[in-house]
Nucleic acid binder design. Structure first.
Length: 571
DNA sequence: TGCGGCTATTG
DNA sequence: CACAATAGCCGCAG
């Protein structure tokens, strides 16, 4: 086992490092030697770098250091106790069995009521209550080399305590592996923010222009163009007063005037009414343009594309209850129509890989259902499910997805009974999760992430209480699958990141999209990486499945891989 | 100004 | 139209 080294870094000032188990190695490195020294340690020792959350991955990337192994105390903390918090205060409290609610609050500006007799020693990181001092948590740890070094030593303490907590979970092996992959995901987030996604601005502006016309010269012209778009929709409607297309109630009123009565004005509902009046079609076209104008238009490019032609957003390694990665700036919800603008740099290609039917495969793995596991041997696992149920492939798919989402009505509900008789173990796994969640009981994913259900809520027998309990059930049921899928995806991403780093410094992950990886590599490496992505998927599966992989029946994971220049060219 | 509702986009 | 997310605009309460 390689060494672990805690690092606390203050950009432009210096960094402290402390080897785990060897406090005498504590060392302060003065700027600007930090980059060289850390790179040397990385090259010589390949340690597992341990840090307090958030800033460190970004600071390391800025220094040109991209560690192979790390331990992000915040990422592990969120896995262990759920939720979104990852402040040093919360991490420390959990590691020391303290209630975070009792942590000291930061004193406000000095005033008449300040208790100067009990002013905290600014060099002391811990409050008498045992919590991290409010001042240190707020950043006072950065103020002197001695304090930064102490801060790194406290990270070591939490690192060891988190191992103790993981040992107590009962499934220590996989939670330890999850800690490693979740930490790697945090580092990857820093790298994704730094590197960005290549985008061709000329193509992007052209695509946007197809929806809303040329770039307006100023705000006044932008308002004029918008008014013209509004006018084009309203022209055939006799209007007494000005009705706003952006106001759903007004749109409902407009529809009523042309003889269409709807409960809401969502596109999927209006789609069926396109033939009834030209206004409906105009409205739907307007909606598309409006969306591009407000969210994915010229302003979006200006705000998020750098001078180097890279689209950048902020990344989070585990957001929401299920712990998926999230990204801002439209990186996770860019309309398909704009994807032709995502183009590899000259001399580079994208290697894109997306996991096939990841959630039902994950369900087979986490539930241990033998029949469903056998189905995963097919490239299209819905086919064997369909023939076993005696229904169409599409209906089988709807039923399986419905089971994972907690759907109780519609076509899928009928086929659900077939699933219950043919895949009872998987279905029991889901219904157990739903029942626990309905009762407000916390869940833990296969990888060890706690999904908090809020506990205290005691919903009465009223219909509102029942529906909230049912919503919790669906939420928890799905979190067990979606969360495990997110953990598996991050394991894959971590393996890919590591293999790319040893292949070529220019080969980098450019985008993570829940079940899809987009890798940006020199074109001569396209073939190797293409094969690699599939091999590394099998490696990730082997790691993630853990001890169950020795069983005769093993869940199979599949990926669709393509080497392309444009993101939109795949499939 | 903050927040819930509605809408659209993605996996 | 079930699960998750980001993000915009509108109306309304404070």
């Amino acid at each position: 086992m390689s060494a672990s080294v805690a690092v606390a870094l203050v950009p432009d000032v210096g960094a402290a490092i402390v080897h785990v188990g060897a406090p005498e190695t504590a060392r302060w490195i003065e700027w600007p030697d930090v980059a060289t020294v850390l790179a040397q340690i990385e090259a010589d020792e390949r340690p597992r770098w341990v840090w307090w959350p958030h800033d460190t991955p970004r600071a390391l990337v800025a220094l040109g250091v991209r560690p192979a192994r790390c331990w992000d105390l915040g990422a592990v903390h969120r896995m262990l106790v759920g939720g979104w918090r990852s402040s040093p205060t919360a991490i420390w409290a959990t590691c020391h069995d303290l209630d975070v609610a009792t942590a000291p609050r930061r004193a406000g500006a000095p005033d008449l009521f300040s208790d100067h007799d009990h002013a905290a020693d600014p060099d002391e990181p811990l409050d008498p209550s045992g919590h991290v001092s409010a001042e240190w948590a707020a950043g006072a740890w950065r103020d002197t080399p001695e304090r930064v070094t102490r801060w790194a030593a406290l990270a070591v303490e939490c690192f060891l305590e988190q191992h103790r907590l993981i040992d107590q979970l009962g499934a220590p092996t996989i939670a330890l592996a999850t800690s490693h992959s979740e930490s790697a995901a945090e580092q990857l987030c820093g790298e994704l923010e730094h590197d960005g996604l290549p985008i061709d601005l000329v193509v992007a502006e052209h695509l946007i222009a197809e929806f809303i016309g040329r770039r307006p010269a100023d705000a006044h012209e932008a308002a004029t163009f918008a008014a013209e778009r509004d006018e084009a929709v309203l022209r055939h409607i006799p209007v007494d007063q000005r009705l706003d297309l952006r106001n759903p109630a007004n749109v409902k009123a407009l529809l009523r005037r042309v003889g269409i009565e709807v409960s809401d004005t969502r596109a999927w509902r209006l789609e069926e009414l396109r033939d009834q009046h030209p206004f409906v079609d105009d409205l739907l076209v307007w909606r598309k343009a409006e969306r591009v104008s407000t969210t994915f238009g010229y302003g979006w490019l200006d705000a998020n594309v750098g001078a180097d032609g890279r689209l950048r957003g902020q990344w989070s390694g585990s957001d929401g209850a299920a712990g998926r990665m999230t990204a801002t700036a439209g990186l996770h919800n860019m309309p398909a129509d704009l994807r032709p603008a995502i183009v590899a740099e000259p001399g580079f290609v994208f290697v894109r890989a997306d996991l096939g039917q990841i959630e039902p495969r994950i369900l087979a793995a986490v539930s241990g259902d033998p029949a469903l596991t056998i189905a995963t041997n097919e490239a299209d696992m819905y086919a064997p499910v369909a023939s076993r149920l005696g229904v169409s492939r599409d209906l089988a798919k709807v039923a399986v997805l419905g089971a994972m989402y907690g759907q109780t009505t519609g076509k899928g509900a009928e086929a659900l009974r077939g699933l219950e008789t043919n895949y009872p173990i998987a279905m029991r796994y889901l219904s157990d999760a739903a029942r626990q969640a309905e009762g407000g009981n916390d869940l833990r994913t296969r990888g060890g992430r706690l999904v908090r259900m809020g506990g205290g809520d005691s919903d009465g027998p009223d219909s509102d209480g029942r529906s909230r309990a049912a919503a919790r059930g669906r939420y928890g049921r799905n979190a067990m699958v979606q969360g495990a899928a997110a953990e598996f995806f991050k394991t894959w991403a971590a393996v890919v990141r590591a293999r790319l780093a040893s292949l070529d410094d220019r080969a980098r992950i450019a985008l993570c999209l829940h079940d899809e990886l987009v890798v940006h590599v020199p074109e001569e490496l396209g073939g190797d990486v293409s094969h690699g992505l599939d091999d590394w998927l099998q490696e990730a599966a082997y790691r993630w499945l853990g001890s169950s992989a020795v069983d005769a029946a093993v869940v199979r994971f599949v990926a669709d891989v393509s080497v392309i220049s444009r993101w939109s060219d795949a499939k």
